[in-house]
Amino acid sequence: MLTEIRFAGFGGQGILLAANIVGKAAALFQGGHATLTQSYGPEARGGASSAQLLISDEPILYPYTTQEDILVVLSQEAFAKFAPGMKPTGLLIVEEELVRVSDLPPTVHVFSIPATRLAEELGKRVVLNVVIVGFLAALTHIITKEAYLEALKASVPKALLDLNLRAFEKGYACGLSARQREALPEETAVSEPAWSEP
């Protein structure tokens, strides 16, 4: 099964690293396949940034998303640009304090998290992307938590690993309680594992 994910926001929010961690978890630690492509503006920070990630139990051919199963948006601009193209029954994750959600089909599962504020409370705003990854990990069963943690260890500098693990767990806890609160149906495309345990 193919799962299409897009991460989008501003340059500097760690969009690409977030997508990289999820892709690495799928491709290296879960025994699946992942294809990650990216697009960004000429600016190092502040411009639009977007990453497209496909994960599957089979080799991936077409390298771009066509209709996202999961959309993660960290800016209003990204929401406006990409929300209309996502799957009407997909999962939408938004940065609660940066994105106002409107005009969506009622069938989209929307979950929000104040990732930037949570990251600041942990001591460093830059880990907001890892908070988001933890949140995503709890809301979906595509990849095991262990695989995420392995990917995280393989992606961040050793000195910052502890902070990143705390950021992941923070997001993960928020995700679990959001799941319970919203009573996410069992039979949604996003809550089913894409492939079995490695």
Binding site: N20, A27, L28, A34, T35, L36, T37, I60
Partner: peptide
């Protein structure tokens, strides 16, 4: 560009 900037295993 697509292959150059594409990340895979």
């Amino acid at each position: 560009e697509c292959v150059g900037h594409m990340t895979e295993k």
